[in-house]
Nucleic acid binder design. Structure first.
Lengths: 216, 216
DNA sequence: ACCTGAACACCGTTCAAGT
DNA sequence: ACCTGAACACCGTTCAAGT
């Protein structure tokens, strides 16, 4: 990521503007003109770098999730627990990619997991392992937060299962063609609701707005 | 339906035109001008009867799906709101089936929606409409509960999107050949958490004696 | 190669004006 | 009350023209 050392190229300016607008309001429209104006760039230039609005949104989404968060973000007490859990869930979602990439990932999963009928014991075991690995990771995050007292008492296994289901639902929506338009806003609010369901409503007040740190 | 006959009012002409266009091509755009032209009516007249395009589409789809889905469970005030919303979400999930049946349903969806690359505009639009229909149904349930005062103020569109994502995630897990033993239990707790996230902690259980400040 | 900004073809909504 | 159609403020995309 380029720090503010030298002048940004138009492409970066556009991306930064879009990220800033998204950070300020995840439900903002991110129209060509709005983003171009914010970036101090012409619509034609925006179009040159992003042949379509969908391409811009896709790139932005990728950039946001591309922060390959190391697994120990969860222990960073400088960040509010809510933001930490959100970041971890985003990291879980990141490898899916967006658009065609997400569809490709989904296709592979489909061919391997749901297509074979009847499912072999091998597939069954592999899938079970995948699920267990996910549960382990999410379970660990929850345990860390619980030790801080940031998590109200409750069934953490159920919570982990719940969060994994939400991430699974979102990852499928990544692969669904039409959902790409307002995917950014919807993912943000949905993950927020899911995290609030786990952390309780008290955690929501710590941070305003649904957007986390989207650094230009 | 009827090519011509008794003089229809403008409202009916508009609705008939929209229905015809939708019947001919479910992916058609149904724009103000297109529908108005097809109905032989001015855009102003269309606007008079349908204050917004969303209203027109909503009326049309309500007319189409009304006799198909009577879903009136949500209005049964004898049942606690939480149970009603849960029942509705289960009804949404039901057609997916379980096991091999769920995999079959998922395979069809996959072949039609995520397999074609690049996705056609037709698929894109049809999928968008499907999602919108789901949002509408869930949105209606939330509206009913809101009118009863069982729903804290908030973004109901975001909540509907969230619930649909959860149901989507669960429906996929239905198709995943894993330990189907605790599927029912996991589904139950996950749906419960999702519903609690929407209805607020008040609806969950009366055991919460701690500081549960519901913001005004 | 990169960028500009006008132009095009849409969209939904508003509204003074008619009947 | 119902209807008209122009006008407005958007939208995404295209493109001749500049540097």
């Amino acid at each position: 990521m380029a720090q503010s050392g030298e002048p940004l190229g138009s492409r970066e300016k556009v991306l930064a503007a879009a990220a800033a607008m998204y950070a300020e309001d995840p439900t903002a429209s991110l129209s060509v003109r709005a983003v171009a104006a914010r970036a101090g760039v012409s619509t034609g230039s925006l179009r040159f770098h992003f042949p379509t609005q969908a391409a811009l949104r896709e790139t932005l989404l990728a950039a946001i999730y591309d922060h390959a968060f190391p697994d120990d973000v969860i222990t960073d007490v400088a960040v509010p627990p809510r933001e930490r859990l959100l970041a971890c869930l985003r990291a879980l979602l990141a490898p899916v990619g967006t658009g065609a990439q997400a569809r490709d990932a989904w296709r592979r999963l489909h061919d391997r997991v749901v297509a074979p009928e009847p499912p072999t014991a091998q597939v069954r075991a592999a899938v079970g392992e995948m699920g267990a690995e996910g549960s382990r990771r999410v379970g660990r995050w929850l345990r860390v937060l619980a030790e801080e007292g940031a998590l109200p008492p409750g069934d953490d296994a159920a919570r982990a299962s719940f969060l994994l289901t939400v991430v699974g639902g979102l990852s499928f929506e990544r692969a669904v063609p039409s959902a790409e338009d307002d995917l950014l806003a919807r993912e943000s609010t949905t993950l927020g609701l899911a995290v609030d369901a786990v952390l309780g409503p008290a955690a929501r007040d710590v941070t305003a707005g649904g957007a986390s740190d989207v650094r230009p």
